[in-house]
């Protein structure tokens, strides 16, 4: 898929002439139907129409020197460069990958567990683009409107490597599950590399943190402090309330929560990379990292 990706990414540099963007923001007719559309617009969100149905897409951009917790996002470029210069083999190694190819990804769902009926109502991701970090969120207006949701999501992703928190066992399998139900109608799921930062965090901080949740890692390790955050476990209730009343105000809190989760993935990847690559020299995590490398070495020689 690499060549197609590259072509896609570079197509703005090619004189292909203007073609309509899939996102129809200003089509008054279609948007008249959408309740509280003004509120959505105010919250950086537009609608995406496909096959007689629609979903929402929110986009926000951060300058690359925006600091989230310990680091500015520009540090991402640095650690990726480091990975490309070292010979260290590691599951989180970004060797051969550009920082623009990393796809920081997190979902919000209507329940726990991995059953077919657990609906993903928000697909959120961030990536580096030039001197900016772009955060995009695809939002399901109501259960059953999944064809536009996955259509809009899949026609836009062209990245090499997923970066998630516990996404190997939850987000990605659940995405596959929901995709299977409508696979006749939407593009195929691409193949991805996958950095699951949950496993890395467990290795480093399971003794330090009571539960290695992302929120705990944020507060105790990454120096990220949230104000007025809506806890993730309320997401299903809030979403159902939104579906019933259509007023998105309450959902904006969950979208913000998801956005911060995704931004923290960037900071966390920077931080983990710096620890593994010993950029900050010997730290309290160095023993755990040594054990990890030892384990990896043994596994390879088996």
């Amino acid at each position: 898929m690499s060549l197609k990706n590259k072509l896609n990414r570079m197509k703005t540099h090619m004189n292909l002439g203007k073609h309509p963007s899939p996102i129809q923001v200003n089509d008054q007719k279609e948007n008249e139907e959408i309740p509280y559309f003004e509120k959505w617009l105010e919250n950086d969100t537009v609608s995406f129409h496909f096959d007689g149905d629609y979903c929402f897409i929110r986009e926000v951009r951060y300058p690359i020197n925006h600091k989230h917790g310990l680091y500015a996002f520009s540090e991402l470029k640095k650690v990726v460069k480091e990975w490309n210069q070292t010979s260290l083999e590691h599951p989180l190694s970004a060797r051969g990958v550009k920082s623009e190819d990393l796809f920081f990804f997190d979902t919000e769902t209507t329940g726990l567990g991995g059953g077919a009926g657990n609906t993903i109502f928000l697909l959120g991701y961030a990536y580096l683009e030039g001197e900016e970090v772009v955060v995009k969120q695809h939002i399901l207006p109501q259960p059953g409107s999944e064809i536009p949701l996955y259509q809009s999501f899949l026609e836009n992703i062209n990245y090499e490597t997923l970066v998630t928190y516990n996404g190997k066992s939850f987000d990605w399998p659940q995405l596959k599950t929901r995709h299977t139900l409508i696979k006749e109608h939407v593009p195929k799921l691409p193949e991805f590399g996958h950095f699951d930062l949950y496993h890395a965090s467990r290795r480093l901080w399971r003794n330090k943190l009571e539960r290695v949740k992302l929120s705990a890692v944020e507060t105790d390790i990454l120096g990220v402090h949230r104000e007025d955050d809506i806890p993730g476990y309320l997401a299903p209730m809030i979403y159902f309330d939104f579906v019933e009343r259509k007023n998105p105000e309450i959902l904006f809190g969950i979208m913000k929560h998801n956005e911060l989760d995704i931004l923290s993935l960037i900071t966390l990847y920077i931080h983990l990379s710096r620890k593994i690559l010993q950029i900050d020299g010997y730290t309290e995590e160095s023993m755990e990292i040594a054990r990890w490398l030892d384990y990896l070495g043994k596994k390879r020689s088996q």
Binding site: T110, G111, G117, N118, T119, Q142, P143, G144, M237, F240
Partner: peptide, 14 residues
């Protein structure tokens, strides 16, 4: 939840 002519599951339970 009825969306168009289809009923979808809309509950956090399994």
């Amino acid at each position: 939840h009825l969306n168009g002519d289809r009923w979808h599951w809309m509950n956090d339970a399994f």
